[in-house]
Simulated assay, not measured.
Amino acid sequence: MKKGWKILGHSLFWICATAFLVFIAHNNSKIPMQTLLVAFVLFGCININLFYFNYLILIPRFLDKKLYKRYFLSLLAATIAVGLIKYGFSTQLWDVMHPKVPNEKMEHEELHFVSYFFSTFITSILFIIFSIILQFTVDWFTNERVQRDLENQRLTAELSFLRSQINPHFLFNSLNSIYSLAYQKSDTTPEAILKLSEIMRYMLYECNDNKVDLAKELTYLQNYIDLQKIRFGNKAYVDLEVNGAVTSQRIAPLLLIAFIENAFKHGVANDSAHPIKLIINVSDGHLSFYMENKKHAHNRDSSGGIGLHNVKRRLDLLYPGNYNLEIHDDADTYTCELSLIL
């Protein structure tokens, strides 16, 4: 089907171009229509055949394979053959090509082979140049499309890898928390397991696309915070404020969780005077996220973490030029501000 449309498009182009040239020449000269039809249609078809002979046969067979000598020899032979064909038609159709004008005597003149062949050679060269330009243009667009496809595949693979890091990273931290509750024989262990189950269901079944509903992502964040509160025996203090109407906005999944995870890992969560502050402002096409937490000097993960590095890389891939992230890591306070065009 695609090939058929391509042939139709080329055919329409040549028909329209030929009709336009015949129309212009007929309106701007006294040359009879039959002469113009022979000149533009018959000889035009010969030139078009040379165009496609070079475009479809010579270029793929020789030029694309860098067989330059064979290409130019074949092209020269084809051009000479076209010149001879045109010369033969011109001698046979002399009366049509040079009609008699009333009241004017005109003798049949023999075509001078060299001068005629030179003029038709120039025309043939123009059609050859057009076919080469077309081939290089098509190749350029094809290469651009292939490069874009390869780049998209690379980015998709990298995003899949980054996302695959999130699940084990989050699961590792959550299981450590639940293990601590179970070790203490806390009554909140079943509730914590249920919260973790809801969170994992979201991560496994809702986060397969590059974008998810913002409402679902915010519910996921709330479940995570609730799980942490259970771990802290409901002595974790978090002020979560969501401003604006959350309607049909979409966001990359698991994008904000890394900041909140770090607040619980490295911050002070059980100080009611200094709660973890989370402010999310939402509009139709924009989201701003602000987080502030008091730092705990002894609550540091000596093994480091992949969370922030991961989220920064995902921002670069999914929101290039459409986000601004500022992090301030002071002696006692850690703040981050993320501005995002959804």
Results as ranks from 00 to 15, higher is better:
residue 49 N to F: 15
residue 56 L to N: 11
residue 58 L to N: 04
residue 46 I to K: 10
residue 45 C to P: 05
residue 80 I to Y: 00
residue 73 L to Q: 12
residue 72 F to Q: 11
residue 80 I to D: 00
residue 66 K to I: 00
residue 50 L to R: 00
residue 37 L to N: 13
residue 53 F to L: 14
residue 64 D to W: 01
residue 58 L to W: 01
residue 31 I to V: 15
residue 40 F to R: 08
residue 47 N to L: 14
residue 31 I to D: 13
residue 71 Y to R: 08
residue 75 L to P: 01
residue 55 Y to K: 09
residue 78 A to W: 03
residue 41 V to Y: 08
residue 67 L to A: 13
residue 36 L to D: 00
residue 51 F to Y: 15
residue 59 I to T: 02
residue 70 R to G: 04
residue 55 Y to N: 04
residue 75 L to M: 05
residue 51 F to R: 15
residue 62 F to H: 09
residue 31 I to E: 09
residue 70 R to D: 08
residue 32 P to V: 02
residue 61 R to P: 04
residue 69 K to Y: 06
residue 38 V to A: 13
residue 67 L to Q: 15
residue 35 T to Y: 08
residue 81 A to E: 00
residue 60 P to S: 04
residue 51 F to I: 06
residue 64 D to C: 02
residue 59 I to D: 00
residue 53 F to V: 11
residue 64 D to V: 01
residue 80 I to C: 05
residue 48 I to Y: 07
residue 31 I to N: 10
residue 35 T to V: 08
residue 61 R to A: 09
residue 59 I to L: 03
residue 51 F to T: 03
residue 39 A to F: 08
residue 58 L to P: 01
residue 51 F to K: 15
residue 78 A to I: 05
residue 70 R to M: 02
residue 46 I to L: 15
residue 55 Y to V: 02
residue 40 F to L: 15
residue 80 I to H: 00
residue 68 Y to E: 06
residue 53 F to D: 03
residue 56 L to F: 15
residue 68 Y to F: 12
residue 68 Y to P: 06
residue 48 I to A: 11
residue 36 L to E: 02
residue 39 A to P: 04
residue 63 L to I: 01
residue 44 G to T: 13
residue 31 I to S: 11
residue 76 L to Q: 02
residue 72 F to K: 04
residue 39 A to K: 15
residue 60 P to K: 08
residue 69 K to V: 05
residue 34 Q to F: 11
residue 41 V to T: 09
residue 32 P to Y: 10
residue 60 P to E: 03
residue 42 L to E: 10
residue 32 P to W: 03
residue 61 R to C: 11
residue 79 T to G: 08
residue 40 F to M: 12
residue 81 A to P: 02
residue 63 L to P: 00
